[in-house]
Structure formats: C-alpha cells, structure tokens
Amino acid sequence: MDFDGGELGGITVEPNPAQDGGKVTIRGKPNQEVYILVPGDKEARAVKLDKDGKSTLKVPVAGGKSFTVSDLNLPRADEVLVRVVSSLGGVPHATR
C-alpha cells in the first residue's frame, strides 16, 4: 500500500495532494463505481467512472483534511488516501 496516497490496484487520484476547493480526477476501470469516504461522514458518495474509466469531481473536504476513494470490495478494497492542502500551501496534516 502506498501510504503517500499513490495508486495500488487500479484506482488513481490526481492531483494528490489535492488543492482545497479544487478538483480531482479519479481513474480506474471503465464504468467502475467507486466511493468517496470522508472521515466522520456517514454517507459514502458513489461516483461512476465513465467509459474511459475517468471521473472528475470537486474536492469534498477542506485543506488539512483527507478523504479516501475506495471501491468497497472487501476484504481487499482498492483504496487511495487523498490529502488536501489549503490554497495557501503548507504541509498537509490531519486536523485535530
């Protein structure tokens, strides 16, 4: 598992770290359904990749936080941790 937020399996997210208020592009298998997991949120947002295996969406959290893109296929789910940096820059870290 690449804990710097890189790719493993088939899902990639660019850019990573993402920019607060920006957009990220998720790449995976064509027509794959992935889920945006935001820590503390009870809902998992479903995202359907297009026929090219791509989808773009707005960064769902603020700078300093992170979210996960996962296919929820347990026990070996393809997942990517995306850290979000604020627009002012700085070292990404978890919010206390």
Binding site: L37, T68, R76, E79
Partner: peptide, 22 residues
C-alpha cells in the same frame, strides 16, 4: 465484511485499513 476482516489476516486488514476505519 469488516467483522470478518477484524479477526482475519492482518495483511487484508492493513491493505484495506482506510475503508475499514471509515
């Protein structure tokens, strides 16, 4: 699935730990 992972192989738990934690 998570309950199975919780007591299963540590490799699987670590592999999908973000999903599991969420």
């Amino acid at each position: 699935g998570c309950r199975t992972m919780a007591r299963g192989a540590i490799d699987d738990l670590v592999y999908s730990h973000q999903t599991f934690i969420w």
